[in-house]
Amino acid sequence: MTDILSKLSEARAIPVVRHADASVAARGASILAENGFPVVEVTFTVPEAANLIASLRDRQPEACFGAGTVMTVAQANAAIDAGAEFIVSPCLAEDVADLCEERAVPYLPGAATPKEVFACWQAGAAVVKVFPAKQAGGPGFVKAVKAVFPDIPLMPTGGIGLDDMQDYLDAGVLCVGLGELFPARDLERGDDGAAMEFVRAAYVRVRGLSKK
């Protein structure tokens, strides 16, 4: 558990890969992992997400891949069997939490209120995903939640861009989930070179940010 917390903290930004085309998702996840981002989340809205995670782990064993939008025990088992090192849900799924505890895999459920944050923590969450962070109140909301739950690691996700990521880090979060890092438009038009250039520039920006 400590190991994944260290990986997430060091990564700062966790790219979220979400796309209806599995080939686009695969190329994007590979580009992210190959160009500086050591931790990548692949959501289960991607077709054959478990197979993609297994393939990514085989090709890039040095990177850390997690599974996102996991809502059922079957999905969680498939993701863990594929090599996912952490499981993320948009909200608390208690049976998934129990499964992750049984299989000793960190669980990161989503919460949008202080009550939900605490419920996730009581259910055994390794990290609580504040989601959707922007709509819930942005950095100010996250900072207020962190003030009353200083021992709960938080990962705000949803509506966050590189331009406001520093504000979330200043609020004391462990890391930030960023869908903006996935270069969907470049990949959709087959311009992997532009996608790689974007990801490399984004990585430089992330590493230039400071953490409290």
Rank of each mutant, 00 (worst) to 15 (best):
V24C: 06
V130C: 14
V145M: 12
D3G: 00
S9K: 15
G140R: 13
G83P: 01
F182L: 07
P38L: 01
F118K: 02
E102W: 00
K212M: 03
V96D: 04
P153D: 02
G28T: 01
T113Q: 11
A104F: 01
E188P: 11
L5S: 06
S6H: 14
A119H: 13
T157V: 09
W121R: 12
S210V: 09
D98L: 15
K129W: 08
K212H: 08
F141M: 15
A126H: 03
P114V: 08
R205S: 12
V42T: 13
K211F: 06
P106E: 05
K143F: 02
V39A: 10
V176G: 07
F182T: 01
F44E: 10
P38M: 03
Q60K: 10
A11H: 03
A119G: 02
T45E: 12
A194R: 14
K212I: 07
S210K: 14
G36E: 12
A63L: 02
Q75M: 14
P150C: 10
C100S: 06
M165I: 00
P114T: 09
T113H: 12
G137Y: 07
D95L: 09
L181T: 03
L174C: 06
P15K: 05
A67F: 01
E62A: 13
A119W: 08
R205T: 14
P106N: 03
R205P: 02
G28C: 06
A104K: 14
L162S: 00
P109S: 13
E197P: 04
A49T: 05
K7D: 12
P156E: 06
R207E: 11
P47N: 11
Q75R: 11
S23C: 00
A93T: 15
V73D: 10
K115P: 03
V173I: 05
A97P: 09
A50P: 05
G190R: 12
V128C: 11
L178Q: 02
R205M: 07
E180K: 06
A50H: 01
S30P: 00
V130Y: 11
V145G: 09
R57E: 14
E116M: 11
I80W: 01
D167A: 15
I80M: 10
V130R: 09
L187Q: 10
V128M: 05
D170S: 11
